[in-house]
């Protein structure tokens, strides 16, 4: 079985993002970029399935600008067999990402597609569900445990009410939650090995994906700040303050 993994590059989670003064976007020059943490979890899960002999090949996919290849090399160094770079200089919204992934699914015929539940830049939490709909296949989102059986998967999902377990027929789309696994660190020899692994480059325009259907972005703004409050010296002062506000 082949596994396709979404591997998006995002602004590192430690960066405190700033909105440009003119509201045209966020400051991205010189900002540290990293793989989306949920995609590292997706890749780790795929690699573990390969190590268990469940999967035979793991392919990472990145959709984005020409300089994405160094990023994809990280995925190869972590252990993916090969990478596909769908090149575009346009912003890619989830429906477009899902349509691109559908084209790759039709070409590659994977038994499983693992994506992150959300990318931590736009926090959309859409792409996996959209791909599953377009592909007319099952989705198991927010996964914290995945067991693959004969032609099916049993997936435990982190939902508001607790932990839900679904059984889905394969092929299927799984999106990862934080507690699915702890991704491995990349070791130096792996970086060397990754240099000879193949990255296939496809122009987005050549895939026949309908463009458009996009949300128009009008402007960006910083969130309203919370003003700094007061420090209280002890429990008695805290209780008095809360009482005066009618909170206790």
């Amino acid at each position: 079985m082949k596994i396709l993994v979404g591997y998006k590059r995002v602004v590192d989670y430690n960066v405190r993002i700033q909105v440009k003064p003119d509201g045209s976007g966020v400051v991205s020059d010189g900002v540290k970029l990293s793989p989306n943490p949920f995609d590292e979890i997706a890749l780790e899960e795929a690699l573990r399935l390969r190590e268990k002999g469940v999967a035979s090949e793991v392919v990472v996919v990145g959709i984005g600008p020409t300089d994405l290849q160094a990023h994809l090399r990280n995925g190869l160094a972590m252990g993916a067999n090969r990478a596909i770079h769908v090149a575009t200089s346009d912003a890619v919204q989830p429906l477009t990402a899902a349509r691109v992934l559908l084209k790759l699914v039709q070409k590659e015929q994977p038994g499983l597609v693992i994506l992150g539940k959300q990318a931590i830049d736009d926090d959309c939490n859409q792409t996996g569900q959209m791909l599953a709909a377009l592909w007319d296949r099952p989705q198991a989102t927010f996964a914290s445990k995945v067991e693959i059986g004969e032609d099916k998967a049993r997936v435990t999902r982190e939902v508001d009410a607790g932990l839900e377990t679904l059984e889905v027929d394969l092929p299927a789309v799984i999106t990862t939650d934080l507690r699915l696994n702890e991704p491995r660190f990349i070791k130096l020899p792996d970086i060397m090995k990754a240099k000879s692994k193949p990255i296939e480059i496809l122009e987005l325009a050549s895939l026949g994906v309908e463009p458009g259907d996009h949300l128009k972005t009008l402007h960006y703004a910083p969130p309203p700040g919370r003003s700094k409050g007061v420090m209280v010296k002890d429990v008695a002062e805290l209780v008095a303050a809360l009482k005066s506000k009618g909170l206790v």
């Binding site: 429906l95 939490n125 569900q129 959209m130 939902v159 259907d213």
Partner: peptide, 23 residues
């Protein structure tokens, strides 16, 4: 925008062929 809605609505949007606004 609970796990119920987050799971469901993008699937609906894709069936309708439209974008989704999250949150």
């Amino acid at each position: 925008s609970t796990t119920f809605g987050k799971d469901l609505l993008p699937r609906v949007a894709a069936l309708l062929g439209v974008a989704q606004v999250s949150d």
